[in-house]
Design a protein around this nucleic acid. Structure first.
Lengths: 243, 243
DNA sequence: ACCTGAACACCGTTCAAGT
DNA sequence: ACCTGAACACCGTTCAAGT
């Protein structure tokens, strides 16, 4: 009780911004963002809540910093590969990071203060596209499409907060029982097939869509101007709206 | 003060689940989800907080119901159109709904209790794809890709909470000033171009990506088996799937 | 310089009590 | 049946005070 002579060998003693961020992340990883509370965080660090404010200006700043640490986990496009390979690797790396840190999915691209790792990341990806011959506008569109797909996939397939009630396949089966199959025949049909094949092939749904997106970008890049399938009248109307 | 004889002409007097949900939504629409508090909601309804619990079992139930009302705003695929047209219209309708209700973006596909409008919606979209000749698996993949794109676009381009500090173009310009252009040259390049063209053409970034996705789905549907660009070894493994 | 104690203004939710 | 009053157990954050 009186003697704390362990010194700097154990990283337990003194608080630091880094230590605050790391335990905050691991807490959010396993309990979701709701489980992250300044008070419980302080308690886990063996400190009084007010002490956190020496290392973090407020909870918003804490979360901004956590998000930037997640960005730092994503691999940047490495040197030699062609753009498609580089983008594929990056997309997978983003999805992996978002799977480890589900709480971050909704925050990565919607915070007001992008951190340094965030900026570095986006700059590097854009740079890869530019040096592969993409125009500025085309690089922007390609990046937008790719990121929309990756984050959207994460959001719709990975975002569910940690589930206390057992494995997801079982949950799907239970849910299936609830649905009256004559009211929602197509839903039941799809879920039955998914449950049947054990969710394994389902696992590469991400790669499947990713290839479609990459091929689409490659094709669009080779065309001078993309023809939008929807618009017979891109000019003429003053305020035309696709109703 | 003493006489409340207006009766049922004004919808002000009596509380109802519908009235609770509607004011909750309009509150979230203009202040974000953080501005939605059981207590302030009650106050706006001229009622004590505890009164809400007669019409809503708790805040989670409230939010589930709000999300389902957003689903109800999305148009279902109408009768005659081809699948691509139907999917295009739906995607635009989803994006519009998510633009009106930015707070819902992260919640539409990640709540544990999908409501009736949610189920109806997904069933109708799947039904459209099935009746256009998509196999069950292909319909699932197509839907997954489409929804990932739409929700991801919403998340990365629309999700920012209501911004007190003026118009976004000005904010982009201010941010540009901050970035040292030799540290993030590609980012600066892209933002400069976007700011220059007034964000108008930028507005159809959504349609641009959507067409690429739709074309990719059409092409994939016509192919017997998609060749994944990434995998030199799709066969040869012992535990191939039991299809 | 870093942490503590104590307080402030808020939350969501419950429960007995009123009408 | 529907709403109120009052309370409980929690929040994020501040600020004077200790070391």
């Amino acid at each position: 009780m009186a003697a704390d002579s362990l010194g700097e060998a154990t990283p337990r003693r003194r608080l630091s911004r880094r230590r605050v961020l790391e335990t905050a992340i691991s807490r959010a990883d396993q309990g979701g963002l709701d489980a992250l509370t300044m008070r419980t965080l302080a308690e886990e660090l063996g400190v009084v809540p007010a002490a956190l404010y020496r290392h973090v200006t407020n909870k918003d700043d804490l979360i901004d910093a956590m998000v930037d640490l997640v960005f730092a986990e994503i691999r940047l496009p490495s040197g030699g590969a062609d753009w498609a390979t580089a983008m594929r690797r990056r997309a997978i790396s983003v999805l992996e990071a978002l799977t480890r840190h589900r709480w971050a999915i909704g925050l990565m691209e919607s915070r007001r203060n992008p951190g340094p790792a965030n900026l570095r990341h986006h700059d590097a990806v854009l740079g890869k596209l530019r040096s592969a011959g993409f125009s500025v506008a085309m690089a922007g569109r390609a990046y937008s499409l790719l990121d929309s797909y990756v984050y959207g996939f994460a959001l719709t397939k990975v975002a569910l907060p940690p589930d206390p009630s057992g494995d997801p396949t079982e949950r799907a089966r239970a849910m299936l029982e609830q649905l009256s199959s004559n009211e929602f025949p197509n839903l039941v049909e799809l879920m039955t097939e998914h449950v049947a094949q054990q969710g394994d092939d389902y696992g590469d749904e991400f790669g499947y869509g990713l290839e479609i997106v990459l091929e689409g970008i490659e094709r669009a890049r080779r065309q001078p101007r993309p023809q939008l399938g929807s618009s017979p009248d891109t000019t003429s109307q003053p305020d035309a709206r696709p109703t």
